[in-house]
Design a binder for these strands. Structure first.
Length: 479
DNA sequence: TTTTGAGTTGTTCGA
DNA sequence: GTCGAACAACTCAAA
């Protein structure tokens, strides 16, 4: 029982329901380590908002480890090199880690296993990031799924998922702690300018924040979730996505927490099922990414490679800054910029707008979301952008073009969401809040709105852009 | 091998 | 205002 195990934390920044850690704790002393790796070839480097979150989350994890009498060792460099060196220096007998699923992860983990074996160290990989391993869900022919519903049916066909495991009660320290970088030296926080104020107000990164977020959702969001989750004006979604992305909470814990409330008299079984199905969408995205590693860069449907995009830097910039002239689009883009998050319904609206109204390649939207979202997740981001663009697995049909006015009127009927993020329109009455260009001059003046000055004029006309998109999609058939 | 039913999230038009 | 159909065919997954 005197073995020393390095626990390599990745996107599993929690102590509970973490098999890699729990098994290490049972074997002897534990050296928790996090490696910031911007060098592994092919890997997507973390975006700005995610780096802010990472700083906060590592701070929380180090504090949580402290309560168990342990520490968090920080290192920078290529994961494979750092682990091999650390294992030798610390005379560790094993390295434990939760498995990752990105396109480069398999090769990286094999390399690490080989490198460690060469110095007599065992590499053990554990599940923990997903509910269903990508290989475990198969069609009758043995292949991966390309359609969500049969994936869901197949994945949930078996016995109930096992319960999540509690955190270790204590962690045994090594005889001597290895050196650690300081978190500050990694420069993860924005300095000049400090744009993270809105993020700080909106979020509490870390496992405790994740548990609090889950508790709030169970108490006030799960009831009515099936309907209300589409309303960006309500606090009706779980907002667990960044916590899940960094593994501060396991999907298994969220799954069971929701299902435990299915018997609650005030919560409908439908609400629980819809929430669990949202968790399963994350699973489906990972399933796709694992089996189609080019998902982040190439259209899943190959014929989209010759789509007649019409990229425009000016339009892209207007979209990024929330200056398109369409209030629901601008509200979403500004929510994103300010808080690192955007409501799911609005993500679909702004995604459809970028790809279909502006004919800008979906990869540009994917890249912007990657940099600005605190919940940036390679699998969900890629799969979702492909879906909205119409080139993904099980994608929306091409004629499904969101009308940003109608979406606003349907899902933000009172304009609450728009007024929150586009305050210069705040005094407009409800009937024109989603289409200020239709307001009579007198109404605009009374609200202090001057189109083209205090708020932009529309960069495209909806009907014109819709026809243009339909023609562009049709050209794929004939050319 | 062939057949069959089905597929997250929408919009517009005309009755 | 409400409702159903059209918008296009195609691919998936299972029988």
């Amino acid at each position: 029982m005197s073995d020393t195990t390095i626990v390599w934390f990745r996107n599993d920044l929690r102590l509970d329901d973490n098999c890699a850690l729990i098994r290490a704790a049972a074997n002897g002393s534990v050296i928790p380590v996090y490696i910031i790796d911007d060098e592994t070839p092919g890997a997507w480097s973390m975006g700005g908002a995610s780096r802010w979150w990472l700083h906060m989350s590592l701070t929380a994890l180090a504090a949580d480890l402290g309560t168990l009498g342990s520490r968090l060792v920080l290192r920078r460099g290529r994961s494979a090199d750092v682990l091999a060196k650390l294992a030798v220096d610390c005379k560790a007998t094993a390295v434990h880690a939760s498995r990752a699923y990105q396109p480069w992860a398999g090769a990286l983990e094999s390399q690490i296993k080989t490198d460690l074996a060469a110095v007599g160290v065992t590499f053990r990989r554990f599940a923990g990031t997903l509910l269903f391993e990508p290989e475990a869900v198969r069609t009758k022919d043995g292949g991966p799924f390309k359609v969500y519903t049969p994936f869901w049916r197949s994945a949930t066909d078996g016995p109930d998922l096992p319960p999540p495991q509690p955190a270790p009660q204590a962690l045994q320290s090594p005889a001597r702690w290895p050196k650690s970088d300081t978190l500050k030296s990694w420069g993860l926080l924005p300095q000049k300018p400090d744009w993270a104020g809105g993020l700080r107000d909106a979020w509490t990164p870390g496992a405790a924040g994740a548990q609090a977020r889950l508790a709030t959702f169970l108490a006030s969001g799960l009831k009515g979730y099936a309907e209300n989750r589409n309303r960006p004006d309500l606090p009706a979604t779980s907002r667990l996505s960044p916590h899940l992305a960094f593994g501060e909470i396991s999907p298994l814990r969220a799954w069971h927490a929701a299902r435990d409330h299915a018997h609650d008299a005030t919560v409908m079984a439908k609400d629980c099922e819809v929430f669990c199905k949202e968790l399963a969408w994350r699973e489906f995205s990972y399933h796709l990414l694992f089996h189609w590693p080019t998902l982040p860069s190439d259209p899943f449907r190959a014929d989209f490679a010759r789509f007649p995009w019409a990229p425009s830097d000016a339009d892209l910039r207007a979209w990024q800054r929330g200056m398109t002239g369409y209030p629901i689009v601008d509200a979403g883009m500004r929510e994103l910029w300010h808080t690192g998050y955007m409501h799911n319904r609005v993500r679909m609206v702004v995604g459809s707008f970028l790809v279909k109204h502006l004919l800008i390649p979906w990869q540009a939207g994917e890249a912007w979301f990657w940099d600005t979202l605190v919940d940036a997740d390679l699998a969900s981001n890629s799969a979702s952008w492909q879906w909205i663009a119409g080139c993904g697995a099980d994608a929306a049909p091409y004629f499904r073009i969101f009308n940003p006015i109608k979406q606003g009127e349907t899902f933000d009927a009172h304009g609450t969401y728009v007024r929150r993020w586009v305050p210069e329109l705040g005094l407009l009455p409800n009937d024109v809040i989603h289409q200020p260009w239709e307001a009579p001059e007198l109404v605009l003046r009374a609200a202090g709105v001057q189109l083209g000055k205090t708020y932009p004029t529309r960069i495209v006309d909806h009907a014109t852009a819709r026809d243009r998109a339909l023609s562009a999609f049709k050209s794929l058939k004939t050319s």
